[in-house]
Each structure stands twice: as structure tokens, then as C-alpha cells.
Design a protein around this nucleic acid. Structure first.
Lengths: 162, 162
DNA sequence: GGACGATAATTCTCTGGCGAACTATCTTCC
DNA sequence: GGAAGATAGTTCGCCAGAGAATTATCGTCC
């Protein structure tokens, strides 16, 4: 009835009973789920001829509309240089287009091409079904409570100081 | 009263009302929390003269005792070649030692050195306090429910097929 | 007991992403 | 209106980690 994290917590209880590492019951599982989800998305994207990072850019553009590279980088919590590379690849693949930003000559507006929009729209249907299926193990009630707790952790950000 | 994921869900509702992407309320937050936690650990480890990956190896050895590189790689869900590199660094830093495995001449037993053990034992105290503090926003009740739901997601693994 | 497939670790190569520099443009402030 | 700092995007160099290939050893099966 336990998972890998239960084993780890038990090991800590044995080796360092003086420490309370029980919070790893939450954060350890979050990290592991993230790793598992990442691996899943990598595979799934590869099967659709995309890299996971590219999929993220396409979905961001699809749901929020055209954006400048800096805002995309912020939204995806990554560096601007990394975003430059991703956009290079997506542009070479004909999935996005950089056009001049009329309001700021330092910048560009990135938008989906027709092909990019078609691709992401068709992939999204399957993606939604995948996500739905992954969450099936939880009752609606549990899912709501889970979301609420995760939002709490994200929101009151006790991470900054140290 | 919303976070970044609430915004994203609202955007999807507007742009693709035909799709049910509500499961992103769970998985999006898990991915974001993981990114935030990773950034936190990177900074904190750097302040202690370690890389986050090295910290993971040291804690694995500390709680589970000496192990061979393959098992360490599996436990940390990473490749063996990556583990070789990490161990090279840790060995050069004098924090772990590879000794011959008497039972299998293909392999080595990796163990903490005295210095490695001292380092990780002292870091762990602060680490436990950090984790404890990060979870403070949740009541014990909420935390238990959160752990249960996360364990469910980890355990009934609907990820494999496609 | 020898052949053959599995496993352990390493090396090599490749790649995605980060940070630091750099250029161009914008904004602000006197 | 011009100097000074901030911001946008890119380039460059670097690094951690993945995967393929390699070598050595183990385990198994006849």
C-alpha cells in the first residue's frame, strides 16, 4: 500500500529520527510526478514529431494569442536565450512566424502559422484526453481538494527568503 | 484569488471550449511547483557548495546506505552515464568513495566518506526545516489528503500505454 | 564447462537550456 | 534634447544529462 516515497520516509525515520522530513511526503511526490509526467510528455510529443518544449510554446500561443519572445519566456519560466533557440526551431519548421512589432522596434511578435495552428489544434484533442485519463484515479471531490492545496503551495510562496 | 494556472484554464475555456482541459488544474500546478522547488533547491545547494544533483546522491546514500551506481541511477530516475559523471564529481570532491564490490567484479560500491557524511548530515538539518516551512501553509489534515491524492496519482500509473 | 544473452560501468557524442556579453532600441530624468 | 539606465533579442561558451557504443563480467542453459 506504499510507494517509493513511503520507503524513503521510512529510511529517514530509521537513519535520522531526530529530523522531521515528513514534508517530503508532499514535495517528494510532487517532484516524482513531475518527472513521470515529463517523461510521458517527451514520448507523446516525439510521437507527434514535436519536442516537449516546442509543444509548450505552441500551446502558449494557441491559448493566449501572439506574444513577444520575452513574455513567452516568462510564461514558460525559462531564459530568453533558450526561447530564441526554441523559436528558431519552430520557425524553421514553419509552425510559428516572427513579425515586426509595430510598437517596439527591439522586438518581434510571434504568432502561429496556419500549419502551426492546425497541428496544435489537432494534438490538443488527444492531449486533453490524456490529461483527463491520468486524473481518473481521483474523485471530483479529491481533485478539487488537490487543486486547492497545490494552489495554496504555489501562492503563499515561502521559497524566496531562505 | 487565482494563480497562473487559473489564468491558463480560463484562456483554454475561451479558446477551446470544446475541450475539457480541467485536469491541467492538477498537472499544471504539479509541473509549476516542481519548477519552483527545483529553482529553490538549486540556489540552496549552491549556497552550500553543492549542485542539486549531488545533494540528491548524497541523501540517497545517507538514508539507504552504500549502493552500486546502477541502483543509485534507478533510485534517482536518471541514466547510468549521468550517474557516472555525478559520482566522478563527488569522488573528486572527496564526498563519496568507490570501492570494489566483492560480490560482483563488474561493479563498485559507492559510500559516503566521513567528510561526505558530515556535510550531508549538517545540511539535512537545514533542509528539513526548509521543507517544513514550505509546507506550513497547509493544515495537517490538508497535508494528509494531499499526500494521499499524490500517492494515488503516482501509484495507479495510467501513463504507460498512450 | 562453454556459448550466449543480460547486466555494470564507462566513454563518447550530441543537445537543450542557462548565463554572460553584445547591439539596438526604448524610457526617464535633468 | 541628450545622457543614463532599462529592456528586447541574439550570439557565444558552457554544462548536465541522455543515448549509443564498448568492455568486462555475470548468469543460464544445453
Amino acid at each position: 500500500m506504499g510507494d517509493a516515497i513511503d520507503v524513503i520516509l521510512e529510511q529517514w525515520r530509521r537513519e535520522r529520527p531526530d529530523l522531521d522530513l515528513s514534508a517530503l511526503g508532499v514535495f517528494g511526490r510532487i517532484m516524482r510526478l513531475s518527472a513521470v509526467l515529463t517523461a510521458f510528455m517527451d514520448d507523446w510529443c516525439a510521437a507527434h514529431g514535436l519536442r516537449a518544449g516546442e509543444f509548450d510554446v505552441l500551446t502558449a500561443l494557441r491559448r493566449a494569442g501572439p506574444a513577444i519572445p520575452s513574455d513567452l519566456a516568462d510564461a514558460l519560466m525559462m531564459s530568453r536565450s533558450g526561447m530564441t533557440k526554441r523559436l528558431d526551431g519552430l520557425e524553421a519548421a514553419g509552425l510559428v512566424a516572427r513579425t515586426l512589432d509595430p510598437g517596439d522596434r527591439r522586438s518581434f511578435v510571434v504568432a502561429l502559422t496556419d500549419e502551426g495552428r492546425r497541428l496544435i489544434d489537432s494534438a490538443l484533442t488527444e492531449h486533453a484526453a490524456n490529461m483527463q485519463r491520468l486524473a481518473e484515479g481521483l474523485s471530483p471531490r479529491e481533485r478539487a481538494a488537490l487543486e486547492k492545496s497545490l494552489r495554496t503551495l504555489l501562492t503563499d510562496n515561502r521559497l524566496s527568503p531562505m
